[in-house]
Amino acid sequence: MRRRLERIYLEHRQGLFTMALAITRCPAAAEDAVQEGFARLWAAETAPRGDSVAYVFASVRNAAIDQSRRRRPASGVEQPEAASIYDGQEADPATAAMNGELVRRVARAVDSLPDDQRDVVVMRIYGGLTYAQIAEALGRPLPTVAGRYRLALERLRSQMGGGDER
């Protein structure tokens, strides 16, 4: 089972990290969450039932949520700046200037999604998961997942399209 999990990690490492980062908003916590997710899987005594990829994403997602709760500061305490899942750094300065604003707009739009919609979008777009895999990872019916995805894209389109039309 360990080799299977390692293969899944190698194939989906970017998607797993992006999902963890979308939840924790901190690269270090996202890294911890991915490791913790896999540590829980290795500690499990039985092989997962159902889709292994969905199982891995579920474990990492749960670990990221736990990380996020643990890192929540007390009221009145300074919070470090939340990190985006996008990288605003571009090698070419001209491209960076042109695309930087677009990346920031997309980041703001994705960050403003409700958590359940954001998770579905990240798993589908950046994790490459099917609706069935996402449904299994989230423990939700497939029509619910498809509905959340649609709502999320409609919301993103209206937020991005509103700026372009002006």
Partner: peptide, 13 residues
Amino acid sequence: PLRKAPPSLDARI
């Protein structure tokens, strides 16, 4: 452009 998963993650996993 996504923030890349760090290389150190491979060693940890």
